[in-house]
Amino acid sequence: MNSVILQAATRIALGLILLFSLYVLFRGHNDPGGGFIGALIACGGFALFTFAYGTARVRKALIICPRFICMAGVFIAMLSGLPALFFDSPFLTGLWTPAYLSGESDWPISTVLFFDIGVYLAVFGTVMSILLAIEDDA
């Protein structure tokens, strides 16, 4: 689809959509949202981008192959479970920074957050690789 209006709108919309998707990802622990939804939102944005510019541009914009992103996501999610083992807890037990737990810091940095990022990347990579493969094939 070679529409100037769509392309111009996409350029602004994609940025906003991605920003929103990250926002949804990070607010997920306390408000509606999370890695899964965030990833789907980002995919929606990139679907728009695909229609406006074609798959070649999308691949270039993503830099990393979506299949790799998806595997990296699974890997990160698994890694986030490992620190718990050093504290004698079962695999994937959530851990928070001492500063947050004691109330000194407002930043809820935790292994759970990294797990959610892993989910985000896995879902995003999967949907994007399907989307691009089908669009390429057509």
Binding site: G28, H29, N30, G33, G34, G81, G94, L101, V119
Partner: peptide, 20 residues
């Protein structure tokens, strides 16, 4: 689990293994 969104807490903490 230090989270107010129960759905998300269930996904990433209580039942994280399932999510994985």
């Amino acid at each position: 689990a230090h989270g107010r969104n129960i759905v998300n807490v269930v996904l990433v903490d209580f039942r994280a293994m399932d999510t994985l």
